[in-house]
């Protein structure tokens, strides 16, 4: 893990009408770090991720990717360097798995079809879905769809991967296959920012846990600290409730 800062978020603000969802959030990620954001629903976690690649327009604050400011002008170039995985997968329904992974390479990065196919198959193999390459999203299970979505994001060779509750829409039995892909990814040195409820995953892989509530970061620290001895009472309450809700095996 080098000391190079891949992502720097400075004082992000976002409101929807009167509702302030992000009230000045700042954080950084060094290369190879994996940070996990946890917190109650609706507290701006997804909005935060969306602001990083400007799928959501922030009202204030700055985002730097590898020390370059992300603006509406360079956003298309920037988005190619940021991989985004959605809660609802959002695979392109009219394209096969292979085409889903390939289309960004061919149309956005302007690679040749052969080159693109090679890279795409590589990524599909990496997520364990090489045999499903010619199937359509409607023919895949939820876990498979999400893995294709991850392959699609990875194919663009991003410097940073953002995961927005990647397993929340999945049946319990299918969560494992997606998490193992994400764990392998983290271990291979990818810089990742993950929003999730999966505390087991967080404990295994995260370099830092960030607890967010009401649009601000309440507490952040290494898993060993946050899970066993959190500083803030809110953090303690939240973790306790999650454990009750999801059971001991999650934590």
């Amino acid at each position: 893990m080098s000391e190079e800062i891949v992502l720097k978020i400075e004082d992000l603000h976002k409101s929807y009408g009167d509702n302030a969802v992000l009230k000045g959030v700042s954080l950084q990620l060094k290369r190879g770090e994996t940070k996990v954001i946890i917190g109650p629903s609706g507290t701006g976690k997804s909005t935060l991720l969306g602001c990083v690649n400007r799928l959501v327009e922030p009202d204030g604050g700055n985002v730097y990717l590898e020390n370059e400011l992300i603006t509406p002008h360079n956003i298309h170039k920037m988005r190619q360097k940021i991989g985004y995985v959605f809660q609802d997968f959002n695979l392109f329904n009219h394209l096969t798995a292979l085409d889903n992974v390939r289309i960004g390479l061919v149309k956005v990065q302007k690679l040749s079809k052969d080159e693109a196919t090679q890279i795409a198959m590589e990524q599909l193999k990496r997520v364990g879905l090489a045999e499903k390459a010619n199937l359509y999203p409607s023919q895949l299970s939820g876990g498979q769809k999400q893995r294709v979505a991850i392959a699609r994001a990875l194919a663009m060779r991003p410097k940073l991967m953002l995961f927005d509750e990647p397993t929340s829409a999945l049946d319990p039995e299918l969560i494992g296959e997606v998490l193992s892909v994400m764990i392998e990814l983290a271990n291979s040195g990818m810089t990742m920012l993950v929003v999730t409820h999966e505390l087991g995953f967080a404990r295994t892989v995260a370099d830092e846990i960030i607890f967010m509530e009401n649009g601000v970061i309440v507490e952040q620290g290494p898993p060993s600290k946050i899970f066993t001895n959190p500083e803030k009472e809110r953090t303690r309450q939240f973790l306790r409730r999650l454990t009750e809700l999801y059971g001991e095996d999650k934590v």
Binding site: N53, H76, I82, G83, N90, F92, G104, V108
Partner: peptide, 18 residues
């Protein structure tokens, strides 16, 4: 068509017209 399709397209760097 859900709005997610557009968002996914943006997320891999496509322009609006693409």
């Amino acid at each position: 068509i859900g709005s997610g399709q557009m968002k996914a397209a943006y997320s891999i760097g496509m322009t609006k017209w693409q």
